[in-house]
Amino acid sequence: MKSGLERILETLEGAKAPADMQNAIEALRDSFAVRHMVYHWVSAAGEQYGCGTYSAAWVARYLERDYLRIDPVVQGCMQHFQPVDWKRLDWSGKAQRAFQADAIAHGVGHQGFSVPIRGPNGQFALFTVSHDADDATWAAFERRNSRDLILIAHYFNSKALEFQPGRTPAPAQALSPREVDAMTLLAMGYSRAQVANSLSISEHTLRAYIESARLKLGALNTTHAVARAISRGLIVA
């Protein structure tokens, strides 16, 4: 039985256009029952691109005021790569306080959790969840969901990289015959024990094949690796 989250991420994996990313982020926002969820790519030239659930008025205001220059979330996350709670950022400057008040007035929410993402060639993006909640409730939300949110952040980024105009696709790494066998059987719904048995190998050896296939595919976990192997035509399922 697949969870709602897995279904949404599978849809995202199969996204063919940026509009599909927008649909996925709206579905995820509803599924996590938070005020907002945003994926935000900032290029070295300061161009911005992304998807999310902020109101059109707030997005327009952010661009018009050039808030990128002072936004403590963006500025703070550029220096780090570990996820950060907004309360740990420096909001003490006058411009930052005014920005925060403006954001709250536009319904962003006063709590936030942002995942910085570093991509190839110095690419930088942010994935943010924001909400209105007291500190204890928000801390509990982060504890419960951080791991999933980190993975979701990277799902969005790898999709965004695919849609980047003029990108050169990373050369696809061929899977070894044993890796193909293992992934194919997993895709057919076999358990690990059944796969190991079918291939006459130990579960320990199977784990090594799965792990190396996962790394070659740049996948986050086994489910993601199977989805990628199918969508790239490396296995038939």
Partner: peptide
């Protein structure tokens, strides 16, 4: 420490130790 999704030393200088395959994963 550096994340392997971004620029990092292992992928730029030691990929030959992994058969030329870069290791890139948020985890």
């Amino acid at each position: 420490f550096l994340p392997t999704t971004g620029r990092c030393m292992v992928n730029e200088h030691f990929a030959h130790l992994n058969g030329g395959a870069p290791v890139s994963s948020p985890v």
